[in-house]
Design a protein around this nucleic acid. Structure first.
Lengths: 210, 210
DNA sequence: GTTTGTGAAGGGCTTCACAGCT
DNA sequence: AGCTGTGAAGCCCTTCACAAAC
């Protein structure tokens, strides 16, 4: 089954909204209502949800509990992902303690840095190792995901070292530098500075509403 | 002139790369080379750069200095943007000290929180005010951009308060909740948890290389 | 010969519009 | 009558391919 990336992004939003509606005791919701709450067209919502089978009831809408479980199923994975975080600077430390990076579905199991002040300590409940120990620790703990929060200049080197372990399948990078990886490894970039620059550009030249 | 959002995002990358090439003393670069360094097709690079006039030399390539200045011009703005950061938690504090959010083109001028421990202090060189003081401080300092790093539950309220000042034009939100703003205010979202979920989804069901 | 600039083609995501259930 | 599911249309961005410039 082929699913577009924007659809997956919205599914995460649907999931959050449905969790909330469920808590509020809401039983049924329409694509129209979901759209209004998330700023999307109703047709977009229906198309997204229809990719994974007919789940709504025509003339009625979507049953909140049922849809919640359905979306959860789509986003679920068989095993619990183990994550390693490389670069325990301010941003890295912030992410180590970030609530949305803790769940029953994944968790940060190890941190890595070069600072002797940090190596050997436990930060936000996560043990910190030296970057040189990465290959062994990643293999030992079977860590398949890496969060990269190192300075741009160190990003490629850190990525290489992580990938060399042979167990890393995906990297979420916050570095403002493009990183190259061998085929089979998936990289997503979160470029905070670029997001800000985009915002500033469209504020300068008023064009469209995002 | 109509410019696509993905183009602006890439322009930021071109700018960074050109700054680096300039420092290395490089004089000329081709679209092919830029593409290889950033992981883009050469035709994409040329199309992006051509939106803003003919800047390359056929048969030669792009003059690094000239192109650097040209891209800088495109991304530039007449005034220096002043930014306010709302929510001095771990993530907020990390962003206050983040190098890529400091430049001659913009800067964080004020932080806001409700924690009495933080209000009145100067954090990473930025004075911290109480959230209740936002309207006056924003107006006084003429702060037009807001970075939102508050918990999801507080995001809409904080956004409302900031927008109520009347001077805020753009919001960069890190909250995992959609925020509604009146027309004329531009919102960009950085959803870290959603990026991670996307990565995990495509790792589960091996599909395309990003 | 080399590399840019660009119209045209291609591909992918969104929106429309309506058939199909309830 | 109300709302979903979906083929078709529309729109936007990327890629191609080649003429034009050096």
């Amino acid at each position: 089954m082929k699913v577009a990336e924007p659809t997956i992004e919205r599914l995460v939003q649907y999931y959050r909204l449905l969790s909330q509606l469920k808590e509020e005791g809401r039983r049924v919701v329409s694509s129209q209502e979901i759209g209004e709450m998330l700023g999307l067209k109703a047709s977009q919502v229906r198309k997204d949800l229809s990719y994974f089978g007919e789940i709504g009831k025509r003339g009625v809408g979507y049953h909140v509990d049922r849809l919640h479980q359905h979306v959860s199923q789509i986003l679920s994975h068989p095993n619990v992902w183990k994550i390693g975080l490389v670069g325990v600077g301010r941003l890295g430390e912030a992410l180590l303690g970030h609530k949305s990076l803790r769940s029953e579905k994944f968790g940060i199991e190890a941190a890595f840095d070069v600072d002797p002040e940090k190596v050997g300590k436990t930060i936000e409940g996560v043990p910190c190792y030296h970057v040189d120990e990465m290959p062994e620790v990643l293999k030992e703990k079977n860590i398949e995901i890496i969060i990269l929060t190192v300075p741009a200049g160190a990003a490629q080197h850190a990525a290489d070292k992580a990938v060399a372990s042979g167990v890393v399948k995906g990297i979420l990078s916050f570095a403002t530098a493009p990183i190259a990886v061998p085929p089979g490894v998936l990289v997503y970039n979160v470029d905070i500075a670029a997001e800000l620059e985009k915002l500033l550009f469209y504020l300068k030249s008023p064009a469209k509403e995002h």
